[in-house]
């Protein structure tokens, strides 16, 4: 059971966190919404919930709630540039299908 960040992603997260001035890590999760069933969420973490699972990757704390972990276990989070756009990308081995725009997925 693990969630990892690529080094690029970890560097960006650290930069964003230090710019924000507070926060203990990065929360990855899924919620049921969108055209394909589920969507990823990516948030800064200020407070931990008791049932949260924590991982550490390249010095960044990654927080996942156990319900989400079932869907995204083994995911590697990357930071990439696509043309003019830049952002985070989930490389999730559990995904069976995505909607056209990739914002939501099914497992």
């Amino acid at each position: 059971m693990a969630i990892t960040l690529t080094e690029t992603a970890a560097n960006r997260v650290e930069k964003f966190l230090s710019n924000r001035g507070k926060g203990i890590g990065l929360r990855l999760g899924v919620k049921t919404t969108g055209c394909s069933g589920m969507a990823y969420t990516l948030e800064f973490v200020d407070d931990l919930n008791p049932e949260d699972m924590a991982f550490e990757s390249h010095g960044v704390k990654v927080i996942v709630d156990p319900k989400s972990l079932a869907y995204i276990d083994g995911t590697e989070l990357d930071f990439t540039k696509e043309g003019l756009n830049e952002g985070f990308k989930f490389n999730n081995p559990n995904v069976k299908d995505e909607c056209g725009c990739g914002e939501s997925f099914t497992v």
């Binding site: 997260v13 919620k31 969507a39 990516l42 948030e43 800064f44 200020d46 985070f88 725009c101 939501s104």
Partner: peptide, 17 residues
């Protein structure tokens, strides 16, 4: 797939929003 940005806690936007 779409590229994501980090949101403030509890404020993740629904897809396409």
């Amino acid at each position: 797939m779409a590229l994501l940005q980090i949101s403030e806690p509890g404020q993740s936007a629904a897809p396409h929003q």
